[in-house]
Design a protein around this nucleic acid. Structure first.
Lengths: 338, 338
DNA sequence: CTGAAAGCGCTAACAT
DNA sequence: ATGTTAGCGCTTTCAG
């Protein structure tokens, strides 16, 4: 295994110079640098991250803590983060909690990360106060993605605004009786988004001079199946809504399916709008409020990398824009449907 | 930052003993071990992976190389692998190639992995012969998931058999004119599965005394949208098939949608079967041949870990079982449909 | 611009 | 059962 010493011997220089040359540090003549690079390549030199990490205290590795890699949003964020980390020569250590409490404990509590990574990305899960203490103790940049956590660096969308955008679209089409399919507003997952979206829904109704009707709010658990159940629940009422706003595309698709099973046409009898612009949204011609999941991953990674190179950096809250994407699952209120 | 030395000083023993005690190595009295553990905990000792890696040559880290984390199969495999790695105290380094040639080059060519991981999992992508050479040079356990690569350790399903199972189901229902929607049989991705599934389709037809008709084979690119296009192509023929076997559930769902748009009822006018048992398959009541994606990740991780602890270990080809899951998108041949 | 030397925090013989 | 002693392969002062 050829090491820095072999390269140094070959170019007849010290390992210090070789190290500087290879890492692009100043104070090396151009000629020396290129000779070193050429020699390193020729010898097939590969640096040892362990040795570099031990000596420098930097691992060039970022931990990404995810509730489930299998959910669209998380996978997209991971993919975005991985791209920029790789471009900058950082590695991505993935911790998938998968709803497993002991996994969670191991990652957060034991400070396993302390000497292992330079920074941490936490996706959409609500750290307990104890966990937050641990994260703080790391003394390393931490960014929360997809959730609001005052005082911490975050990257997310404005969930209240996204909901308002969806509602404005439905209200603009003449709908007045609008149902909501969301998810639990408590729990360790997605802890702020469901709450903010529900608030956006209610506020939009109030803003339009309408009363929020608790009977029109159902829990779709952020899944297809849940969305379908919730949709059926709302649509089987004696006074069903003419439009449904689902807090995620998966739930919206579930709602569409429930409508179809009940013999309702979309959008003639029921308008449906979601949030996400999931890859399947286009496929289902779903009107939705698009959120840039992939971009949130990129920006979050950029944020922690910036923090690493600027020690004086202060946590920032970054909001990424959402955009209404009108497809064919929403339409004007059909008078007969009332 | 408290290190092993601090613990050693506190218990008045050598760092060697502390190291042994903490790692569960033999040759430490029970009493000493528990005193060391207790003290380490009290002092908040966290080991340094860099130092341990440098001294031992082991990183307790496994690289997982994925084409796209955002595809269901890959995400599920990663999740499965992460579970067993975490249980065993290994970390997962994720490399997402995302169709980026330079990313790919960086991961494989530069032997970046050499001193960074103890083992490698490669998902469904076809390493070039140069890349295989590099992987071999690593001198570390490598397992290929979801593809067949003679001479290498692999974990996958029997794709030919899975296709045969699907075809047998359709043939048993009386279908004779059966279309196939698959993906490219060349390329760097999923390189053996599409080929084997297509062969399974053709062989099943031959086995039933039917001729394989190239006009009934379409490319759905393993995506929803592609499946829909391919489905439309087959169904708009003057002599459309009465059943379609799609090599993945996403394509099968695309086919169903194409059928619906053409006014065909499923399964009365068209039977559709897929492969995967994707999370959406149940939602669409899709008949499919289930493959254990999550389990393939688990088994692959177990395989490399076993290889790590048994140096004499020889590469194994592991086939995981598939299972026909009959739902409602397949039905008996409708005589009128002929 | 380059070199010498002292670690970084552990592990792994080899002793005792 | 425990201790001693070398490193592992780099980075980083501090000199020159």
């Amino acid at each position: 295994m050829t090491g820095i010493k072999d390269v140094a011997r070959e170019v007849e220089m010290s390992t210090a110079t070789v190290s500087r040359a290879l890492r692009g540090l100043p104070g090396v003549s151009d000629e020396t640098r290129s000779r070193v690079q050429e020699t390193a390549r020729r010898l097939g030199y590969v640096p040892s991250p362990s040795a570099a990490g031990l000596a420098s205290g930097q691992t060039r590795t970022v931990a990404v803590i995810v509730p489930f890699v299998t959910r669209w949003f998380f996978a997209a964020v991971v993919q975005g983060a991985e791209e920029v980390l790789r471009e900058r020569g950082y590695d991505l250590l993935l911790y998938n909690l998968a709803g497993d409490a002991s996994a969670r404990h191991r990652v957060f509590e034991t400070s396993l990360l302390t000497k292992r990574v330079d920074a941490v990305l936490v996706l959409s899960l609500k750290p307990s106060s104890e966990e937050l203490r641990r994260l703080q103790q790391l003394g390393r940049p931490v960014t929360i993605v997809g959730a609001d956590l005052p005082g911490w660096a975050t990257v997310r969308i404005d969930d209240h605004l996204a909901a308002a955008t969806a509602m404005e679209h439905l209200l603009g089409l003449g709908h007045r009786r609008i149902g909501y399919v969301g998810g639990a507003t408590e729990g360790v997952l997605d802890f702020t988004a469901p709450t903010a979206r529900l608030a956006g829904y209610r506020d939009a109704l109030l803003g339009a001079g309408l009363a929020a009707d608790p009977a029109l709010e159902a829990n779709g658990e952020f899944t297809f199946a849940g969305g379908m159940r919730a949709g059926r629940e709302l649509l089987e009422r004696t006074d069903p809504p003419s439009a449904i706003f689902a807090a995620s595309d998966e739930m919206a698709i579930g709602v569409i399916r429930a409508a179809r099973e009940l013999g309702l046409r979309v959008p003639e009898d029921l308008s449906v709008i979601g949030i996400d612009d999931h890859e399947m949204a286009g496929f289902f011609d779903l009107t939705t409020v698009a959120q840039p999941a992939h971009e949130q991953g990129r920006v979050a990674a950029q944020q922690v990398l910036r923090a690493l190179s600027h020690p004086e950096w202060k946590p920032e809250q970054i909001l990424l824009p959402t955009q209404l994407v009108v497809r064919t699952t929403t339409g004007p209120l059909n008078p007969r449907a009332c």
